[in-house]
């Protein structure tokens, strides 16, 4: 087993062991923190497909995170007030079923990613960063000025949505749900990275012109990656909103895009488990340093600087070496 694979396995086991221990000693707050790590890691893994494998520095992924959150909020709020979403041309009701909400969240954020990607992927470099940022802020201001769903104040959900056979209000059961989803997405992305699609996407990141001479269309590849990435980030958004039983425009702000990117950079850009380690570290710093000082972001900034300057492959790169693991 390569060192990176060992680190990946340890990370996944640690993320499972900590909340199980917390459950055993009855520390529900720690379970909630671990759930937050799993959800942020999921968002990071989603962005990492576009950023790490595709080389697409998207500063608008918070939009997909927020769309996933609002998909949950809107469906659940209509279900709890027994008012339909629409009555024409057909009756459309809200739902408290998590699988349905996840599906809607992924479809809606995937469609938004398709529209954003179709336009922004025609640009590259700093223009791509700016256009995705602009789209993200567009969605953010739309959410602020949407009074039907709380506007700036956001939208509260009284009871967490349900999953067949589980009590989702029990922190450990909700954590397990998020953990399994993260593990499934990690497995799927590991397969995707090794598929001809993943290899071509990686090749397009390395040399755009050269992939065209072997008959590959970089634009189409990147658009598919961007849509999958947006859909997974949307799923994380739906889970995050369910965790807090609250959704607000903050989820769509550019700071959220930046935070998701920070998870990836801390853990290692292009490393499958980079966002998992990054999200874990971020939440730990937020929890422990946040308790010491309200200016904890300063320490995070210093850490980020150190990682960027001295550990280009993030923490995984630092521990496992420069090369990305290959079987």
């Amino acid at each position: 087993m390569q060192r990176e694979q060992l680190i990946n396995a340890t990370t996944l086991l640690a993320l499972l062991a900590v909340p199980l221990w917390a459950w055993y000693v009855d520390e529900p707050f720690t379970i909630t923190l671990a759930t937050k790590v799993a959800i942020f890691a999921l968002a990071g893994v989603g962005l990492n497909l576009a950023l790490g494998l595709g080389g697409l520095v998207s500063f608008g992924h918070a939009a997909f995170f927020g769309i996933g959150g609002y998909a949950m909020g809107i469906l659940a709020s209509h279900a709890q007030t027994y008012t339909p979403l629409a009555s024409w041309p057909f009756l459309l009701e809200g739902t408290k079923s998590m699988p349905v909400i996840w599906l809607v969240a992924m479809v809606m954020s995937g469609l938004a990613a398709l529209a954003v990607g179709a336009l922004s992927l025609r640009t590259t470099g700093v223009y791509f960063i700016m256009i995705t940022l602009a789209f993200g802020q567009m969605f953010f201001y739309f959410a602020i000025s949407w009074p039907a769903y709380g506007g700036e104040d956001g939208l509260s959900i009284y009871v967490r949505n349900g999953f067949p056979g589980l009590n989702t209000l029990d922190p450990i059961q909700f954590f397990m749900l998020c953990y399994v989803l993260l593990a499934v997405v990690l497995f799927f992305f590991a397969r995707l990275a090794k598929s001809p699609f993943g290899m071509a996407l990686n090749a397009a990141r390395q040399n755009d012109e050269r992939v065209q001479t072997v008959g590959i269309t970089p634009y189409r590849l990147r658009l598919v990656a961007f849509v999958i990435s947006g859909a997974v980030t949307g799923l994380a958004g739906a889970l995050f909103a369910d965790l807090n039983r609250f959704v607000s425009p903050t989820m769509l702000s550019w700071q959220t895009s930046g935070e998701i990117m920070v998870f990836i950079i801390l853990g290692g850009v292009g490393r499958l488990y980079g966002p998992v380690i990054g999200a874990g570290l971020f939440i730990m710093l937020e929890h422990f340093l946040g308790g010491l000082s309200e200016f904890w972001h300063v320490y995070l900034g210093v850490l980020l600087l150190l990682v960027v300057l001295f550990a280009r492959g993030g923490l995984i790169g630092l521990l496992a070496g420069k090369e990305v693991a290959h079987d």
Partner: peptide, 11 residues
Amino acid sequence: NLTVLENLVAS
């Protein structure tokens, strides 16, 4: 940054 096999499969 692709292996030999990946270079071939991608093309």
